[in-house]
Amino acid sequence: MREAVIKTDKLTKRFGEFIATNAISFEVQQGEIFGFLGANGAGKTTAMRMLCGLLIPSSGAGTVAGFDVYKQTEKIKKSIGYMSQKFSLYEDLTVLENIRFFGGIYGLSNQQLKAKSIELIHRLNLQKDKDRLVGTLPLGWKQKLSFLVAVLHSPKVVFLDEPTGGVDPVTRRQFWELIYESVENSITVFVTTHYMDEAEYCNRVSIMVDGKIEALDTPGNLKEKYGATSMDEVFYQLARGAKRGE
C-alpha cells in the first residue's frame, strides 16, 4: 500500500447554522488521480479550501502531505500546487515572467528556475510566445500553462478546480495528457470537473451531495454498483435528489 497523501476523518465546516461540508472521510494515495465531483453548492469548494490550508475546519481531522489542516497550514501550502478556472496566472505578465514569479514564490533557486522554465516552454511549444502577455493567449494555452506552473515546484499534491471549463475538446485532451505526465512524476492530482467523461480518466471518484460524500470508488465499480453505462448517469442518480445549490 502506498502512503496516503490526503487523509480526512469526519472533516466538517460550518458557517453559522449551515453545514457546508458534513463529516467527509476519505484517503487519496500518492500518485493517484482523484476526481472530486458534486453538484453546484454541494460543498466541494469548501472542502478543497480546507485541504489547501485556506480555511480552518470546524471539526474532524485531516492531513495533507502529512501536515495537519489545523496547525500546519503554512507547511501544507508549500507542499501543494493549486490551479482554478478563475484564477490562474497574471494576465499582464508575460509567459516567462509568470513562470519566474510563481517559481520564485515557491523558493526555487535561480538555476532551477532557468532549467525548469526552459523545460516548461519546450513542453508547451511556447518558444516563440514566451515573451507574450498571458492575457493574449488562447484560453486552452493559458490553462495548460497554469497547470504546469502549478506543478513547477514538484508539489506532493496538485489541486485543480474545474481546470478545463470552456476549453475546446482537443486542448482538453492535451490537458489530461499533462496530468498523466505529472502523475508519472508521482504527483498526486485532486481534480473537480463538470465533464463526466473526465471523471472516467480518474483512478477513483467521489461524488458529493449536500455536503456529504455519497459515493467513492473507481469509475468502473461505481457504474456497476448503480447499474449505469456512464459516469453521467451515476452522477445523475446520486445528485438528482440534492436539496441545496450554490
Binding site: A39, N40, H194, M196, F235, Y236, A239
Partner: peptide, 10 residues
C-alpha cells in the same frame, strides 16, 4: 449551462 452541474444541465 456553463459551469452548471450535470443534473441542472439536464
Amino acid at each position: 449551462t456553463t459551469g452548471v452541474d450535470p443534473v441542472s444541465r439536464r
